[in-house]
Every structure is written in C-alpha cells, then in structure tokens.
C-alpha cells in the first residue's frame, strides 16, 4: 500500500516557501482567471439550458418529454470526464473545432444542465396549484401564465439549489485540466511537472478552492434560510 519514497532525502522534504511565493502570483491571476471563466461560462449555460430541459421534460407531448428525459438521465449517469473526451477528441472529426476552454465550458454546462433541470422541475412543482387556476380564471394565454406567473415563482424557489450547483461547477472545473485547459489545477500540474514537485502548487490550488467554496456555500445556506421564512 505505502512504500518509502525511492529518492527520499535527495530533495528538501519540507514546504519550500521561496518557491511557493514565486508561483503564487501566477496561480492566483492566470490560473484562477481561467477557472473563474470556466465556472461562470459553465454555470450560465447550465442554468439556461437546464430551464429549457425542465420545460421540455414537462411537455404534454410524450414524443418530446420522453426522449429529453432519457438523454438527461444518460448524461447524468455518465462521467463528465468521458463526456469531455467525446467533445474534445471526437467532435473535431465531425468538423466542430473549438478551443479547449470552450469545449470545457460546453461540457460542464451540458452536464450540469441535467442537474439544474431537476432543480427547476422541483421549483415548478412547488408553485401552488391555485396559481395555475388563477391564470386560467383570468383567461391568460398559456405562454403568459408560464412566463409571468409560474416561472418567476419557480425560479425564485430554485435559487439556493442553483447556488449549490454553481459551487459544484466551480469545484468540478479542474477536470478540464485533463483536456489541456490551463486552469488553477492545470497550471499547478504544469508547475509541478517542471520540478517533479507537486506539494506547493497543489496545496496552493487546493487552498484556493477551500477559500472560495466554503464561504460561497455558507452564503448559499444563508440564502436558503432567508427564502424559507
């Protein structure tokens, strides 16, 4: 299970402050910038696409709702990593050429859209039936009642859960480093492989995630409590 390092003792086995300070600015600016881009891009796509999926899933026509549901279930049950491989390695064969970051954003967005669709669905189910009945009583057209009565309430209820998925997307974005996106973790891997020493870059990268994800999830929890009351 565990074996002593073969080259133990040849390099300093403790934290190297000088190097850590040297790589910190690069990780903080260049690396974190890409991570934030991937997170925001992926989250926006997931939030918009998820709403469409949720609406299609509720379509009264089974030839629309069934296939949409099945595809969403499939995407949710398979690893993001393999989906990224498909987007990055297979799509170019069909003439779709994108940068690694764009591919990653689409991968994250589509994958998490299948999750946010469930969030919206729960939100829509939470809207009291009386709201529908009122819309019918007022003789509002179906589209109107959806967009000006049901959805605003449903989306409001969905906000805390969407916040959780924003944090989840942020935390899963390092997977993009496998398809050569140079985010925080991608950069940390590059820096580590230059010196065969991953301790400092990986620890710094990990700390970034903790420092952002923990306050963010505390904020989300607070939002949850405020919406409850």
């Amino acid at each position: 299970m565990a074996a002593p390092l073969r080259d133990g003792g040849s390099r300093p086995m403790t934290w190297d402050w000088d190097w850590a300070m040297e790589i910190l600015p690069g990780l903080l600016t260049q690396g974190l910038l890409v991570t934030v881009q991937a997170t925001i891009g992926g989250a926006l796509l997931a939030f918009v696409l998820g709403l469409f999926l949720a609406l299609l899933r509720r379509s009264p026509r089974p030839y629309i709702s069934r296939p949409v549901g099945a595809v969403a279930e499939f995407i949710r049950s398979t690893p993001l990593l393999v989906q990224l491989f498909v987007l990055y390695y297979v799509m170019p064969d069909f003439g779709v050429k994108m940068t690694a970051l764009t591919t990653g954003i689409i991968g994250l967005g589509v994958h998490y859209a299948t999750y946010t669709a469930e969030v919206y669905r729960a939100g829509i189910d939470c809207v009291p039936k009386g709201q529908w009945e009122a819309a019918v009583a007022l003789n509002l057209p179906r589209r109107w009642s959806w967009f000006s009565i049901i959805l605003p309430q449903a989306v409001r209820r969905s906000l805390p859960a969407l916040g959780n998925y924003l944090v989840a997307i942020f935390k899963e974005s390092p997977q993009l480093s496998v398809i050569t996106v140079v985010d925080v973790v991608g950069l940390a891997r590059e820096l580590g492989s230059e010196r065969f020493r991953y301790l400092e870059p990986m620890t710094i990268a990990g700390l970034f995630f903790l420092l952002i994800a923990i306050p963010a999830s505390i904020l989300v929890r607070r939002m949850e409590r405020r919406l409850d009351t």
Partner: peptide
C-alpha cells in the same frame, strides 16, 4: 470544499513529499 481531482493529486503527488 475541494474537488476529488485536487484531493487525488494532493494525496498522490503532494503528500509523499511531506
């Protein structure tokens, strides 16, 4: 607070140094 990938890299590449 961190993703599996970061924890994996840390356990596999960084912890041995420490």
């Amino acid at each position: 607070g961190t993703s599996v990938l970061v924890q994996l890299f840390w356990l596999f590449y960084a912890m041995p140094i420490l």
